[in-house]
């Protein structure tokens, strides 16, 4: 069973936000307006934040998404198991089960869970633009990065149809796919031959706020030598 993980090389990441746009379009995350953004209701599963990280004097741009913790504080507190850690290490959301109590959003130390304050909306001309592989979340439920889980399911199907094993390049999340400086590397953390496992063990690797015991599967690589 693979254990999916994402390595983000901060030495390469330019903070360009291409990944942010890719994620929004891939996952049908609605737009904001200046007003909704000022009310703290901007929806984005991935966002670049100025973070204090090892090896930098000042805040550095850091892509922040669900860390897919191996010991996720968010899933523990969910009263309905609407968010849970699946066997492949992806922290999932079951939208039809979520009661919208927002306990998980408050328990997540990374503040990456988002609540649908209102029904998502697109201007009429943009309605056809939604990705049919990803459900649109109704108002009142919580959502977050899924590691583009639908892409995994498609990749599996494709591999099965072609009668082969799932390869490393078959399953690539949307943010990883677009990153211009190739700062994001996605793969199986348990695959000893994969580059992700090697990088995650490397000397530059750190997990953000790992002192909280969350055991994130998003691994950052420090800037500098």
């Amino acid at each position: 069973m693979p254990r999916w993980g994402l390595v983000i090389d901060l030495d390469r990441c330019t903070g360009c936000q291409a990944c942010v746009v890719a994620c929004k379009h891939e996952n049908n995350v609605p737009f904001s307006t200046p007003e909704t953004a000022a009310e703290g209701r901007l929806m984005t599963w991935l966002q670049i934040v100025p973070a204090e990280v090892p090896g930098r004097p000042g805040p550095t741009p850091l892509p922040l998404l669900c860390q897919h913790c191996d010991r996720p504080p968010c899933t523990d507190v969910c009263p309905t198991s609407a968010t849970y850690l699946n066997p492949e290490g992806i922290v999932a959301q079951v939208y039809p089960r979520c009661i919208g109590c927002r306990y998980c959003t408050n328990a997540c130390p990374y503040a990456v869970k988002l609540f649908n304050w209102t029904e998502p909306q697109w201007p009429q001309s943009m309605a056809p633009m939604v990705n049919p592989d990803v459900s649109i979340r109704p108002k009142g439920v919580v959502e977050k990065c899924t590691f583009c889980h639908h892409r995994l399911m498609q990749a599996r199907e494709r591999a099965r149809a072609e009668g082969r094993e799932l390869g490393a390049e078959d399953y690539v999340p949307a943010c990883v796919q677009t990153c211009p400086p190739e700062a994001m590397i996605f793969g199986d953390l348990d695959d000893p031959h994969g580059s992700v496992a090697a990088l995650a063990e490397g000397p530059r690797a750190f997990r953000w706020m790992e002192e909280l015991g969350t055991k994130p599967k998003v691994v950052y690589l420090r800037e500098g030598e």
Binding site: C78, P79, G100, R102, V141
Partner: peptide, 24 residues
Amino acid sequence: VILDLGRPDRALNVLTHPHFRSPL
């Protein structure tokens, strides 16, 4: 608490899909 729920219509999910690790 019911007022605070995003989906009060699903409040009973707490009983039909209970997760006992949740303080809630």
